[in-house]
Design a protein around this nucleic acid. Sequence first.
DNA 1: CGTGCAGTTGAGCAAATTCAACGCTTGTGG
DNA 2: CCACAAGCGTTGAATTTGCTCAACTGCACG
Lengths: 224, 224
Amino acid sequence: MQLATQMTDVKRGAGASDLRKNTYVPVGIAGVGVPMPFQRNTEIFGEEETADYLYMVVEGAVRTYKVLNDGRRQISAFYLPGDIFGLEVGKEHTCSAEAISDSSIVLMRRSTLLALAEKDGDVARKLWEVAVQELGRAHDHALLLIKSAQERIVAFLLEMAERLHDATSFQLPMSRQDIADYLGLTIETVSRSFTQLEAASAIELPASRHIILRNRFALSRLNA
Amino acid sequence: MQLATQMTDVKRGAGASDLRKNTYVPVGIAGVGVPMPFQRNTEIFGEEETADYLYMVVEGAVRTYKVLNDGRRQISAFYLPGDIFGLEVGKEHTCSAEAISDSSIVLMRRSTLLALAEKDGDVARKLWEVAVQELGRAHDHALLLIKSAQERIVAFLLEMAERLHDATSFQLPMSRQDIADYLGLTIETVSRSFTQLEAASAIELPASRHIILRNRFALSRLNA
DNA sequence: CGTGCAGTTGAGCAAATTCAACGCTTGTGG
DNA sequence: CCACAAGCGTTGAATTTGCTCAACTGCACG
């Protein structure tokens, strides 16, 4: 079992004082919420903190994760621009969230949204939708984790391609370690799988985070 | 990667005609629904069928699963008496469900429940609760799948013990193959792990499906 | 220019799978 | 009642996969 790398120094997020109170920007669900900047590797919320907000990625990328008591880290999900995260059943967050790259995130008060949902069916429906999508992704993630290393990588690349506007060429926002912790592999195995896919001319790697899908059909076939 | 065993003959569920129309039993959410018998290995619903009902286990046990195109089977969840399953976001089921043992299952019309939820906050809350619990279980499941074989088995046993009224001695309703497909292992590895745990006197195995937790502390320690 | 971080590559090793055989229980049919 | 087949579970040996440990490269930054 791989250990998560030495937890890179995680900075605290910008305080509430950073909220741009004077520039109203109608974003987030039903125009609720204010965008807030988060630097790379900053914590957005921590496990067991009270879940007062819902979050929407405007720019950048976010990872949510849990850490086992021996240090292994499981990344539950990546969130890209447009994605909403931080939805919880109970009062507290059940995982932590960090910005992967410098990001702009809209914070929406949970209480505000819930009050709004009471009156506005669209808001209620949107919240339900978010919960359902989250559930579907969690199931797909579990399905990923029973596959072989190479199949996991392929599934990951296809998922990213689809979520990044079905691009054939794209930049990965996350490190090899993030990918490894998402897929339940080690960085070495991730790296080797990339190299093998390149050797099989299924993908191209102009730079370590720049992916070009060269043969989508071959990839799909490798995806079990 | 293990293949699921030769799909044992899955019988069709009892037809609607089996509904016990004359004996009203107030069960399920808000008393909605009628209990219906399902034999061992009977299909309750299939992937891509329309999701017209919610289901509640009264007696027996249920598995939900997906099958990859090469035959590997991933069991997403087990449901025990009191558990509700079959909740979907969209119109269709995203996985199949089968009775593990002879079971009694309450069927509740989705449309009935949704109509009820409009007026009754308790019903709406219950539905939300079910969705949230499902999400939590899915996350825990993914967390399971990054652990070592023995850790998965231990986590599985502790989960079952907790869900079966925190019993120290209990009967597993499912086969080794079911456990393997839930944990992403092979039956052989599952079997060996059981044997090792018994050898380490962490558990006792009076019969292959009868588990006695002998040393809960040792088990927790093995659970990472 | 040196240091640190991210990523790649190689060699050896450990864990889990595959393949195969075998034991036990259950149900069926002569 | 016994014989036999089928299903389920266990065990052993060989193999494969992915992990660990280690070295090395390229790159950015001070």
